[in-house]
Design a protein around this nucleic acid. Sequence first.
DNA 1: TACATCAATCGGTTTTATCAATCAATATCA
DNA 2: TGATATTGATTGATAAAACCGATTGATGTA
Lengths: 295, 295
Amino acid sequence: MELRQLNYFVKAAELSHFTEAAAALYITQSTLSQQIRQLENELGIPLFDRIGKHVSLTEAGSVFLLHARQILLEVEKGKQAIQDLQHLLSGDLRIGVTYAFTSFLLPALATFPVQYPGIRMYVEYGTTQSLEAKLRASELDLVLAFHQEAFNKDLEMLELFRSRMVVAVSRKNKLASLKKIPLQRLTGMDLIFPSRGFSARDSLDEVLQKNNIQPAVRIEMNDVHSILSLVEKGHWATLLNERALLGWKNLVAIPIEGRELQRRAYIIWQKGTYRKKAADLFMQELLKALPDMEK
Amino acid sequence: MELRQLNYFVKAAELSHFTEAAAALYITQSTLSQQIRQLENELGIPLFDRIGKHVSLTEAGSVFLLHARQILLEVEKGKQAIQDLQHLLSGDLRIGVTYAFTSFLLPALATFPVQYPGIRMYVEYGTTQSLEAKLRASELDLVLAFHQEAFNKDLEMLELFRSRMVVAVSRKNKLASLKKIPLQRLTGMDLIFPSRGFSARDSLDEVLQKNNIQPAVRIEMNDVHSILSLVEKGHWATLLNERALLGWKNLVAIPIEGRELQRRAYIIWQKGTYRKKAADLFMQELLKALPDMEK
DNA sequence: TACATCAATCGGTTTTATCAATCAATATCA
DNA sequence: TGATATTGATTGATAAAACCGATTGATGTA
């Protein structure tokens, strides 16, 4: 039994006329006869009475017609579901972000769900490491994160912008007026660091080790928002991506000398997998915000 | 899209492994790949991620899997419905009878629905003419009636038994003691006749006309039960098939001289149409009662 | 690094869906 | 009644496609 035969059968049943049905199906009457016969053979029962010149449904034919219609209806529903998916009337979109992307993500997050109300969005904050792991396991569709290398074996990456590592202090802090800070200067500061696993922390560790600097890290925290809240109070300083400070009006970003502390932001997705249309469009939405950042 | 492809797809999705799925389907991995690819092309979206050595469903694949399963389920339901029909777990059986068959029909009507509880039965009383018309229009599956000719262009007929035309009178009637009545004797009797259209009446008309006899028909009625009720009161006489009198204990059947008034009872069905299994079985049930009638 | 395994691909074979033409039965019309 | 047209079935040929076996290329694994 094939869908083709069911289609033929339904049309023939509706018209009670093989020749007309065949014409409507753009096949010859011969073909229609054969396919119907084949279906009857498989079911083991005639679907039509051939009485004289005209055909009419048998009891089995009437019963089977209902089922054939139902089957074809289910097929249409299946196709429609795929169409919906492609036209974004439905679907899931799972995005992983690191904290520094908050201000970058929010505008898109405000407009996108309005444009495509059928799409459920899941946003997950996490460290670059944990997000990439989930991306590889296909638990996320898209990740926004900083990264060291621009290439990766099984991840596709698109560079968004670059962001310097800065020292963040409160306006009230005595360092707030500085235009630049040399790396060595960190040694004497009271620092709160993000925990290991945070990309800012990991890349920082690398640089500090290379320059043989061991600043006094007084506090480690795995929540950037909490870190910045502490720094805002005045006493503490921290090292973060410049981007992470957007929106914190009481904080001052002081660039660190040395180019090596410039980091690259990427949109990352799995290599080889089919990229959801929703993901594509969301990326476009994100990229719209890019020009505004060039400052 | 064909059911074949849906079957392949579901198996491949369940095993997440083309080679194994192909083996389970008794086709080569090559064929499976091609058919899946074809399905994907038609839907316009990949159903599997081919990442490295293993395959896994895409979002569209997961969605479509549900629908594919549903479609195949509907197909099974359709096939099952046909099976049920063939094994008589369901179906309709529409029988037309003339009044004279009542006593013949009742036993089968008592046992058959018990044996096959899934079958809905419709019994329609009517004249031979009207029943045959409905039979031709496929509004009835089977007709029990008397008939003149044993052959008909588009009706299939199986002779059941023969039944004489008799004069029916009450036991109280003065004619009740007669063993035979010559045709001519009818002229002086007070007769109630079935209306035209009733086979007894029509065949009677023929014979009477041939013998140039015009009995005084005082009443015509189109309901045999009412005729017999009247006759039972004593005054009237009527002409009917012997069979019609079974069960009327207060009536006496007096045969008419002359062989031409013997009539043949038939099971009649449409020529060329598929005969329902239910109809076949019901016929067998009817024929069981035949031997008891030979008296 | 060699090996095994996977899905994709290629070329060729078999199956089958399709068509055009014809046939037999039947309804319609002169 | 006989001629004609129309129906679905049948037949033989052709084009499509389902299928297979072998190979390739990529990817894990010993």
